[in-house]
Design a binder for these strands. Structure first.
Length: 751
DNA sequence: GACCTGCTGCGGCCTG
């Protein structure tokens, strides 16, 4: 079954021979006839010591691949061992810790070693017992590790001084994120506190797009020391289909406001899709990724009503982040243990490795957000040998009309789905965006380190966090600037003691004492959107790049952003007229450059993929027709009345940056899906400026960043200065150096 | 035109 097995001449597994006796006995008891591929190869790699990444598809047995050798290593030293855990396993999800606890219980028992669960839902009593007699394996979240260091910094050496290894599950979920940076820092602080040069790290993942980045994430600064065990096993056949639907145009909102009932329109558009879903999913075990919480509710309700109408027991259940934990766990348990047909209708909640067993098919509404999420979703089906993975993507576009927005006439959802599947089949997925400064998390880590140690010299803090820790792109000068910012009277997070030690200031004391200090990621931050006279229109997520002068679409109408109060988190807007028809939404996270390029190739090409149904084929044909009609192969600028739309076919950050560069030249430019809208300008005038941008040196990224709102997007950003926030934004979210190249791309098609 | 993740210590009350 397993390709690439490292068998010895007599057929016995070499890896098996390397394992300790109790571990081998446990394997026999499981009735396993052989080790899986990733296990066979992980055993010698891990027993050899050092850092290792285990990359293998979901359900390939990665957890055992890490623990069989780690426990074998720990067993002989069990007698007379000093206190301290042998292995710390870190997971991004509490639910995953609970799954792994169930899975590892028997193995640990067979080895006569304790297994501890440690997260916010575990009783304080169980955690106290684990702390008092630290032995065996502990399954923990990054936040609980942080809390242990902050509250009991003095015990770190006793708890973690004898660790053989740290296992990081779902490594990809941490790469490039604030939370990942925190975990890197916590692991490095543990090494320092334990007086250990390094403690081996084992990273587990199914979806790593770029192994060089994954290595750097596991051991910052020393990626070459991380060995890679990539499993050859897996790769079920894939049956896939993109289904296209044309839906009646959304009604225009009545003049004078009031808005449209978006949910009702959504329900109407969902009907033909729901009918097909009901037909193919009923009676089986499936996952349906609906894209948004509202869509999850709409589709679950539809499918449930259809079951009732057909006098069948309901088998469709919702699963998203706003549902109570017990409701979600009931759906997971039904998928995992219950033989009855079940479809979970979910957001991204079921993408990570929570154990729900194998499903027969995966369906998705819309093209989704990324190729890596597509790959993650696909890994949920086709796990049994000889059974293919089944994926259906449903895409709805507005019914054709000559007045449609150019972006709608280009049928971008269908085109994006086709482009993404092409990249998926090429085995590509988005690398994480790394290289961020993560100053928000640096603020939190500085406070945590002060609390853990009781105070330290600024240079020691820099050595621990930056020079030898994960904030390697923060030099001494920048660290001093951050310290000055958080020591300001209005921040008061830190202060200097008379003997030159960094101490917590009054506000810092309060923050560290708070229950919500341990998590570094931002939650539920939104702008209030205010019209003239202070009338509240609603709220808008903070993660859309907005600048004064740009146009947003809200409550079915277009608005000009008049002013932005980042600290009060408020947008002041006024109604604006537009030649372009209104479309809902405004925020657009953007795709990767390579997806945008693949979309352009799809529009230029003539081939029709076999996985398109008749509806999707028709939509692709319309899209290619519109692409030719606009002359987009030669000219990236389309004039619409008094406005223009630019299609540069670049990813989100370049699109945002280029819109800001135009805004800096007094154009009213706003990024929209895959395009930039520019109000009140002529195509020749716009072309002249783009050509100037192509000839000029790149604009200053920090100056562009200052034009955009939302500098306060991360948790500790409010304590930083405007200058530091612009530096973070320029480094993490903009690509100013690419502006001349993007301009040339636009003009290249004008030539 | 998204979505998701996480959390201590202590005082006071109740039950066996």
């Amino acid at each position: 079954m397993s390709a690439g097995r490292a068998d010895t001449d007599d057929g016995a597994s070499r890896a098996f021979e390397l394992l300790a006796e109790p571990v081998r006995r446990w394997i026999w008891q499981q009735g396993w006839s052989e080790l899986r591929d990733v296990q066979e190869r992980a055993v010698p790699a891990i027993l050899g010591g050092g850092d290792v990444i285990l990359a293998a598809r979901t359900a390939a047995g990665k957890t055992e691949a890490a623990f069989l050798p780690l426990l074998s290593q720990a067993l002989p030293r069990l007698d007379g061992r000093r206190p301290g855990f042998c292995v710390v396993y870190v997971s991004p999800l509490k639910a995953l810790i609970n799954d792994q606890f169930r899975r590892l219980e028997g193995l640990l028992e067979a080895c006569g070693m304790p297994l501890h669960r440690w997260h916010g839902d575990v009783s304080a009593d169980a955690k106290r017992k684990a702390r008092e007699r630290p032995q065996g394996v502990v399954l923990i979240t990054p936040e609980s590790l942080e809390a242990t260091l902050v509250r009991r910094g003095g015990e770190a050496a006793r708890l973690f001084g004898n660790l053989d290894a740290v296992v990081v599950d779902e490594l990809h979920a941490f790469v490039g994120t604030e939370r990942g940076r925190q975990l890197q820092s916590v692991l490095s602080r543990i090494e320092v506190a334990a007086g250990r040069d390094r403690i081996d790290r084992i990273g587990l993942s199914a979806t790593l797009g770029d192994m060089a980045l994954a290595r750097e994430a596991l051991r910052p600064g020393e990626p070459d020391s991380v060995r890679l065990v990539e499993s050859a096993e897996g790769g079920a056949d894939l049956l896939l289909q993109v289904r296209g639907y044309e839906c009646p145009r959304r009604p225009e909102p009545p003049p004078g406001g009031g808005g449209t009932d978006v949910a009702a329109v959504g329900v109407a558009a969902a009907e033909p899709v729901a009918a097909h879903l009901f037909e193919v999913l009923r009676g089986r075990r499936n996952l349906l990724f609906a894209g948004s919480r509202q869509n999850v509710e709409v589709y679950t309700d539809h499918l449930r009503a259809m079951s009732e109408a057909a006098r069948l027991p309901n088998e469709f259940f919702a699963h998203h982040g706003n549902l109570a934990r017990a409701e979600r766990e009931a759906v997971e348990a039904r998928l995992r243990e219950d033989g009855r047909p079940t479809t979970a209708v979910a957001t991204t909640t079921l993408e990570l490795g929570i154990d729900i067993g194998d499903v027969e098919s995966v369906a998705q509404i819309g093209p989704g957000w990324s190729v890596s999420s597509l790959r993650q979703r696909l890994g949920r089906s086709g796990r049994r040998r000889g059974v293919p993975s089944v994926l259906r993507i449903y895409v709805s576009e507005d019914a054709f009309a000559p007045t449609l927005h150019p972006a709608d006439r280009l049928r971008l959802d269908v085109v994006q789905a086709v482009a993404m599947i092409g990249l998926l089949l090429d085995r590509w997925c988005e690398p994480p965006r790394v290289g961020g400064l993560h100053l928000s998390t640096l603020v939190q880590q500085t406070l945590a380190l002060i609390a853990q140690t009781g105070g330290l010299r600024p240079d020691t803090a820099w050595q621990v966090l930056c020079r030898h820790g994960p904030f390697r792109n923060v030099g001494r000068d920048l660290f001093v600037e951050v310290l000055r910012a958080v020591a300001r009277r209005e921040a008061a997070l830190v202060e200097m003691s008379p003997d030159g030690l960094l101490m917590l200031g009054p506000a810092g004391e309060r923050l560290v004492a708070g229950h919500d200090f341990y998590a570094v990621f931002q939650v539920d931050e939104e702008y209030r959107v205010l019209a003239e006279g202070g009338k509240l229109l609603g709220t808008l997520p903070l993660d859309s790049t907005l600048a004064t002068g740009q146009t947003i679409i809200f409550n079915g109408r277009r608005w000009r952003v008049e002013s932005i109060d980042a600290r009060a988190r408020a947008l002041l807007v006024s109604p604006t007229n537009a030649a372009l028809p209104p479309r809902f939404g405004g925020g657009w996270a953007g795709v990767h450059d390579r997806v945008a390029a693949a979309m352009r190739d799809t529009l230029i090409g003539a081939g029709v993929p076999a996985f398109l149904d008749a509806g999707a084929r028709a939509l692709l044909e319309q899209a290619r027709h519109a692409f030719r009609e606009y002359g987009l192969a030669h000219d990236a600028i389309v004039a619409v009345g008094r406005d223009c739309v630019i299609f540069p076919w670049v990813g989100g950050p370049k699109l945002d940056t280029f819109a800001l560069a135009l805004l800096a030249r007094n154009f009213q430019a706003s990024p929209v899906r895959h395009a930039i809208e520019v109000r009140d300008c002529s195509a020749p005038g716009l072309r002249a400026i783009v050509s100037e941008l192509a000839r000029s040196p790149p604009p200053d990224g920090e100056a562009l960043a200052r034009l955009a709102a939302k500098p306060m997007r991360e948790r500790y950003d409010p304590y930083l200065t405007e200058a530091l926030l612009a530096r973070v934004a320029a480094a993490e979210r903009l690509e100013a150096h690419e502006v001349p190249n993007v301009a040339r791309r636009i003009l290249g098609r004008s030539a």
